[in-house]
Simulated assay, not measured.
Amino acid sequence: MQKYIYISNDIRNKIVKGVYHANDQIPFEKTLCLEYGVSKMTVKKALDILVAEGLIIKRRGAGTFVKDLSIDEIERIAVKNQFRGTTALNPDKKVRSEVLLFSVVHAPEIVAKKINLEPESFVYDIYRIRYIDEKPSVMEQMYMPIDLIPGLKKKTLENSIYEYIESELKLTIQSAHRKVSVRKATDEEATYLNLEPGDPVAVAEQVAYLDTGAAFEFSTSVHRYDEFSVELILTRD
């Protein structure tokens, strides 16, 4: 992960989690350079991302501050932050992937239906395990249209696919529809996730969308019961 992306993810997470509150001053760029061990240009690029997202503002001669965000805005950011992926949500930890399967196939019927593909369309078929600080956390089965997400390679899958989509392809991930259920782990899942036979797992089925409205992912992820949480925001019209 590029350093400026890492820094923007870290500061964004601190805002969402309330480490930095509305109107709090972000440390000066010189301090951030020392904290993250990077150049002033790298820090500037990271802060510019957060300025563009509307999370912080720069006041000439005073410094950089968290915007006075409304409750609705904080909720929107918290929800959107869930769809940045495992790497972005854990900037202070080592995240890596072990790729079990990577191939190009005709979209299975359920996949074509979920992400609105024409019959016989080709998709990536991706199966991988994600580790956080060398502890297996989640098994992911993912399908993505090759014409919408071109150029995926195994090396990309070993890191962050979402970072590749936004940084390399210059696409914007907007939202996802997710259904979560709980069941017992299969023998294979228990082995890969280092669980006891019969331990519970959380299963998240997801369709993810770009800001164009195009669905780019249908996935099923199986999470360790002690490594998974989901934030829900309920509103009443």
Rank of each mutant, 00 (worst) to 15 (best):
D199L: 06
A214K: 15
A214Q: 14
T212I: 09
V207D: 00
G198R: 15
V201H: 01
E188D: 11
A202N: 13
K179Y: 05
L171E: 04
T186A: 00
A204S: 14
T212H: 14
E168C: 05
T191S: 14
V203F: 05
F216C: 02
A176S: 07
S167F: 07
N194E: 11
Q174V: 01
S167I: 03
R183V: 01
V201Q: 00
V203C: 09
E168Q: 09
H177E: 04
A185L: 05
A214S: 12
I173A: 03
K170F: 07
V180H: 01
S175N: 10
L193W: 02
H177N: 03
H177T: 05
T191V: 08
L171W: 05
G198K: 15
Q206N: 13
V203R: 08
E217Q: 13
A214N: 09
N194C: 10
R178S: 02
S175G: 02
T172A: 07
D211S: 11
A204H: 05
E196P: 06
T212K: 15
G213F: 07
Y209S: 11
E188H: 12
A190D: 08
A190L: 11
E188C: 03
E166Y: 02
L195N: 06
T191I: 08
A208D: 00
R178A: 01
R183A: 04
V207G: 01
Y192W: 13
D199T: 14
P200H: 09
V203T: 13
L210T: 04
E196K: 15
A204P: 00
R178L: 05
L210I: 07
D187L: 07
T220Y: 10
E189V: 01
E188L: 07
E189N: 07
T186L: 08
E168Y: 11
E166G: 01
R178N: 05
A214M: 10
A204Y: 01
T191G: 12
A208Y: 00
L210K: 14
D211M: 09
Y192K: 15
H177Y: 05
L195G: 04
F218S: 01
S167Y: 11
T186R: 12
P197G: 06
V207A: 06
Y209V: 04
Y192N: 14
S181Q: 09
A190F: 05
S167N: 12
V182K: 04
T191F: 13
F216A: 00
Q206H: 08
P197N: 10
